[in-house]
Every structure is written in structure tokens, then in C-alpha cells.
């Protein structure tokens, strides 16, 4: 239900897009030199933070282009969108604007409704 501002097409409904998980996880070039653990890290492990998350999106039912987005996972708010190859904005640049619903803790369910 969020609007996503495709850098090539403009604002479109979320239903036109697909999420591609964490961004800036480069595919290792010399994978044969990696041990099982390091290669496994690339294949199987991704971050799942509450708060600022750098992630990839693709405009599946549109221009089919991939791009990057910074999203606050606790509010679904998209803070920044930038093209592949562009430098990611620094984490600090969002810290002032970042909020969590109902001021809930950094880790947890988010089922907070009553102000203590």
C-alpha cells in the first residue's frame, strides 16, 4: 500500500514491484578461494533489522529495472531511492528522521498501543 518512486517511471503502487532483499551484498568474485563459511555467509545470510534497511527492488510490472531503496522496516516508510551504481546514502543521514510506531523498542513485536 506504499507508493514507490521508481527512478525510471515515477511513483507507482507497491503492487507493481517486487522486493529483492538486502542491497549491497556483492557476489564474491573469487569464490573458489572462499572457505565454506564465508561462501555460506554470502548465500544464506542476510540482515533483517528493525529500522533502517538498504534493500533492492525491481519494477516487475513496469520497466523491469532494479534499483536500491532505504526503508524503515518498522514503519514501511521509504526514506530514499537511488539507482544501482550510485553511492548509498549514509546511515547517519536518516537517524534524525527515524521513528518507530508508538515509540516502541528497537527489538520486538511492535504490538504497543498504550502509552506508559
Amino acid at each position: 500500500m506504499i507508493l514507490i518512486n521508481c527512478p525510471y517511471c515515477g511513483e507507482r503502487d507497491q503492487s507493481e514491484f517486487s522486493s529483492g532483499g538486502e542491497a549491497h551484498v556483492a557476489r564474491p568474485e573469487n569464490s573458489d578461494h572462499l572457505n565454506d563459511k564465508d561462501w555460506g555467509q554470502y548465500v544464506f545470510y542476510r540482515d533483517n533489522p528493525k529500522g533502517i534497511f538498504y534493500e533492492r527492488w525491481v519494477h516487475t510490472h513496469g520497466c523491469r529495472k532494479w534499483f536500491n531503496a532505504v526503508r524503515n522496516t518498522s514503519t514501511d516508510e521509504i526514506l530514499k531511492i537511488y539507482k544501482l551504481g550510485e553511492n548509498p546514502p549514509s546511515k547517519e543521514s536518516f537517524s534524525n528522521t527515524l521513528k518507530t510506531p508508538s515509540g516502541e523498542p528497537k527489538v520486538g513485536s511492535g504490538n504497543f498501543t498504550v502509552k506508559k
Binding site: 514503519t75 521513528k99 510506531p101 508508538s102 515509540g103 504497543f112 498501543t113 498504550v114 502509552k115
Partner: peptide, 23 residues
């Protein structure tokens, strides 16, 4: 209001929850 993730607060005079901090 709570669906929108706003915070509610108990009001001792009304004996009810009422909206406090909007999100």
C-alpha cells in the same frame, strides 16, 4: 487511531482509553 499505530492513554476521568500520540 490504533490501526494507524497511534498511542493511546488511559484517562482516569473518562475511564476510557483515548488517543495520545499520533504516529
Amino acid at each position: 487511531f490504533t490501526q494507524s499505530k497511534g498511542l493511546v492513554k488511559w484517562d482516569d476521568k473518562l475511564l476510557a482509553f483515548k488517543p495520545d500520540v499520533p504516529f
